[in-house]
Structure formats: structure tokens, C-alpha cells
């Protein structure tokens, strides 16, 4: 029997979307409210792990396979490095320069908006992608390992 009972399945099919949305909110608004890429990434991974615990490993792997998680991991790391490298070509030359940030102009209330922080939201998204993908990958690999080893023991005995 795959997964848990019908109660757990129906509850978690509703809750998973809320947890996923909360993770995206925490990641994107990390420069205005508490949170950021690290916390948001861990919450994104938690939503898929809830799916894996409730519905079984195969269902979670149909949604986000092992190859896709490793690709997302690399994409997150490369995106972070690309945001850093863009500092060489725009604005003041240097690694990790906040080239999108506008200087403060009197009268215009540009602070405390989503786009007011330059490269920080982009870096938050990259970090969240990387942390979430890598943490989901490690839990998936731990569960794959248990299934393989128990199957191997049954064949031997």
C-alpha cells in the first residue's frame, strides 16, 4: 500500500499548496519582512516532503524527479553567480555590486517596495531555489536507498 490513509491524503493535498505559496512569499519578500532565501527554500522543500510522506515516493517523483532536482540545484547556484558577475558589466565594476539599486530621490517614496532593493530579491530567489532543490534531493535519496536495500535483502533471503 502506497502512502498513508485517505484522511492524511486529502488534508495534505490542500495544505501542500498553502505551504508552497508561503515558501514563495517568504523567499520573494525576504528583504522587507523576516525570512529570505534560506528559510523560503527550506519551506519549499518541506512542501514536497509532505507530498512524499503522504502519497509515497513515486507520486512525489512524478512531480519533481531526481534529475530535475539536481538540475534546479545547479541552476540556483549558477543564477547566484550570474547575478554576482553582472556587477562587472553594469554600474561600478566589481563582484557583487548592487547594480540595479537606484539612489534615493527626495519626494519619491521608493523604499519598502518589492523592486526597491536592486539585486537582493534576485539573489534571494536563486538561494531559495538552490536550498530547496538540494534539501529535497537529499531526503529523496535517503528514501530511495531504503527501498533499494530492503528489496535487495528480500532477494537474498
Amino acid at each position: 500500500m502506497k502512502g498513508m490513509t485517505i484522511i492524511v491524503k486529502s488534508i495534505s493535498s490542500w495544505v501542500k499548496m498553502l505551504i508552497f505559496l508561503f515558501g514563495i512569499y517568504i523567499t520573494i519578500f525576504g528583504h522587507l519582512t523576516p525570512g529570505g532565501g534560506f528559510a523560503g527554500g527550506v519551506i519549499l522543500a518541506c512542501s514536497f516532503i509532505l507530498l512524499m510522506l503522504a502519497f509515497g515516493r513515486e507520486y512525489a517523483e512524478e512531480n519533481l524527479s531526481l534529475g530535475l532536482t539536481s538540475k534546479l540545484d545547479c541552476v540556483g547556484a549558477l543564477l547566484f553567480a550570474a547575478v554576482a558577475l553582472c556587477g562587472f558589466f553594469f554600474g561600478a565594476a566589481g563582484f557583487f555590486v548592487n547594480f540595479l539599486h537606484q539612489e534615493w530621490q527626495a519626494g519619491q517614496a521608493t523604499a519598502l517596495k518589492l523592486v526597491s532593493a536592486g539585486t537582493i530579491p534576485l539573489s534571494n530567489i536563486a538561494i531559495g531555489l538552490k536550498v530547496g532543490a538540494s534539501l529535497f534531493m537529499i531526503v529523496l535519496i535517503l528514501s530511495v536507498f531504503r527501498c533499494d536495500s530492503s528489496a535487495g535483502k528480500q532477494e537474498v533471503s
Binding site: F38, L135, L142, S149
Partner: peptide
């Protein structure tokens, strides 16, 4: 500390995988 907490989760998974492999 924010970075150290996430790194501690990565190192925890590495240590636990070593434990599971040794148990196997």
C-alpha cells in the same frame, strides 16, 4: 548564524548518510 544553520543541515545529512552506509 543564518548561514550556519543551513550548513548544519547539510552536514547533518552527510553524517547520517555515513551512519546508514556503515549500518548497511
Amino acid at each position: 548564524v543564518l548561514t550556519a544553520i543551513v550548513i548544519s543541515l547539510g552536514s547533518l545529512s552527510l553524517m547520517i548518510s555515513i551512519c546508514i552506509r556503515t549500518y548497511e
